[in-house]
């Protein structure tokens, strides 16, 4: 087996064994550190080790009994849901409009819409802080949702545009020639066919908001502190083991979301 050629250049598996070992190590490096947090979160002692010397649900109790962490969870979920709605709708409309319009300016506008992904996020955060200060939007849910939406719009635009490229716009023309208005043709012909792209985009927006630290650090003070903001501040001061339990919950959530996005991808490619 090892002496068989691996590629058409006739290199054998044995000759590039080191390559497989390197890949194995890199894969372990990518996933193991994160997964180790899960068993460690069930540790009974204040000092987290693997495997834990004693097992307990102590840090989960600490999380669920803390009013601050519960409030942060609620704020984060609200922000993520609202961001998903705002970013997915505005981003999808923009992707559709820019994809269908034949005016020259569309290219420039697409670049403008992708800028939030390119500009360093600390700069966006400082700008948002400055903009929201006179509008009393700092430390408000509205402020968080608006700024997170802006960060999510580029991802929605890219994902939905990719979906639209695989869709034959003539189908919509047919619907319109048969008497459907443009909105109706979009909703009944186009949208059902790019549905999976739009849902993927929605998932991405949700994750962007749930994971966002830097903007939240500057503008989400007081009652509207999000989970990432609280986690960041807690980690800066001292390593509180409660974070292990929250991390485990977040890891499970991301596995769920990753699975969902893979499912959508598969459906899309069929």
């Amino acid at each position: 087996m090892l002496r068989r050629p691996a590629t058409s250049t006739q290199i054998t598996h044995l000759q590039r064994l080191w390559l497989y070992i390197l890949c194995g190590i890199v894969l372990l490096y990518l996933i193991v550190p994160t997964l180790l947090v899960i068993p460690m979160s069930f540790s009974g002692s204040r000092f987290l080790s693997f495997p834990p010397e004693t097992w307990s649900l102590r840090w989960y109790k600490a999380y669920f009994s803390s009013a601050e962490w519960r409030a942060a969870t609620w704020v984060s979920l609200q922000a993520a849901v609202c961001t998903t709605i705002v970013a997915t709708i505005t981003g999808t409309l923009a992707a559709y409009g820019l994809h269908c319009s034949r005016l020259r300016i569309t290219k420039l506008l697409s670049v403008l819409l992708v800028l939030p992904m390119i500009i360093p996020v600390i700069l966006i955060a400082v700008g948002v802080f400055m903009l929201f200060a006179p509008m009393q939007l700092n430390s408000s849910l509205t402020g968080i949702v608006l700024s997170h939406s802006v960060l999510a719009i580029p991802l929605v635009l890219i994902t939905v545009t990719a979906g639209l490229r695989n869709f034959d716009l003539n189908q919509e023309q047919v619907a319109r020639s048969l008497g459907a208005s443009r909105p109706k043709a979009f909703l009944t012909v186009t949208l059902p066919q790019i549905k999976n792209s739009v849902l993927s985009a929605a998932l991405l927006s949700f994750v962007v908001s749930l994971d966002e630290v830097v903007v939240a650090l500057l503008i989400a003070g007081g009652d509207v502190a999000t989970i990432p903001r609280r986690m960041f501040l807690a980690l800066r001061d001292e390593i509180d083991p409660t974070i292990a339990s929250i991390s485990t919950i977040l890891i499970l959530l991301s596995i769920l979301l990753l699975g969902l996005s893979q499912f959508l991808d598969r459906k899309r490619s069929k």
């Binding site: 705002v86 500009i119 903009l131």
Partner: peptide, 25 residues
């Protein structure tokens, strides 16, 4: 133009929240 205007809500958000403050900065 009508098609193009579909991108205005997103552009308004990005322009108002990201680009304008950075220009001002």
């Amino acid at each position: 133009l009508k098609l193009l205007s579909l991108s205005f809500p997103a552009l308004l958000l990005v322009g108002f929240i990201v680009l304008a403050p950075i220009a001002w900065l």
